[in-house]
Amino acid sequence: MAFLELKNVSKGYGHGHDRVDVLKDISMSIDEGEFVAIIGFSGSGKTTLISLISGLIEPDEGEILLNGKPITGPGPDRGVVFQNYSLLPWLTVEGNVALAVNEVFKDWDAERRHEQVLQYVEMVNLTPALQKRPSELSGGMRQRVSVARALAMNPQILLLDEPLSALDALTRGTLQTEIEKIWRNDKKTVILITNDVDEGIILADRIIPLNPGPNATLGPQFDINIDRPRDLNQLNDDDVYKKLKPEIVEYMLEIGDKSASETTLGDLELPDIQPKDLRLKLA
């Protein structure tokens, strides 16, 4: 039995004429300990998918099973790392992680909870910033706090919603390595939502493209059989990588084009204007 299973899940927003169907007939199953990346264009319904799994929204049709039991609402068994960190600005790094730990492990004594907080802050290398507030941290540090908060709840599954998309390339690389290391030690089930093919290849066991919405469906999956730990610098010489990357990119471009050609302008009347001279007059 699959660990997490989505069965014919559909979700749309609005009613009548304004209704937009975001996801249509999504089915997938994820095994325990697997790292799955879902890749899609902006606006293809990636965040809707992760909100469905986290239980923040409910599907219109179909069902989502975790360990064979349907998901009925959000809960700490699914740790979410939100795209924009969603740290509470009035709490310190310690406070943010402690809020989650104190809530989830109510029956532990204070000392054990405190240790749990320190352990996970240490895991993301933020012990020196323990007493700082989010506004004093860089984007990468904030995202690490967010990861620490999610992991400290000891969830069964970790949901990462474009966790690195707001960061600069260098920080992103470091954090990718860090996330991979944490995953290797922890062997948690992880679903990563991303729009970066390389990020998917470095981190995931499996990449599933999400075809652009409305009515987004899942594309064919790509298994990534590259040995871990994967080094971004050596990846370029890896044969599997060299074969896989163009395949995925080509598929993404194809579905991108298809969706662009499907979105017609309709009967929109365009102005009858021809550009005369596009060169700059320099003199």
Binding site: P74, G75, P76, G79, V80, S86, W90, L91, L99
Partner: peptide, 29 residues
């Protein structure tokens, strides 16, 4: 209030008064 903060409260399954005192009031101070 930023919807993310409310989502945090939901994921943590905070009770009504906990939500008020730990999320809602500090966020709207």
């Amino acid at each position: 209030i930023d919807k993310d903060y409310i989502n945090v409260a939901k994921v943590l399954k905070l009770g009504f008064f906990e939500k008020i005192f730990k999320i809602v009031l500090p966020a709207s101070l």
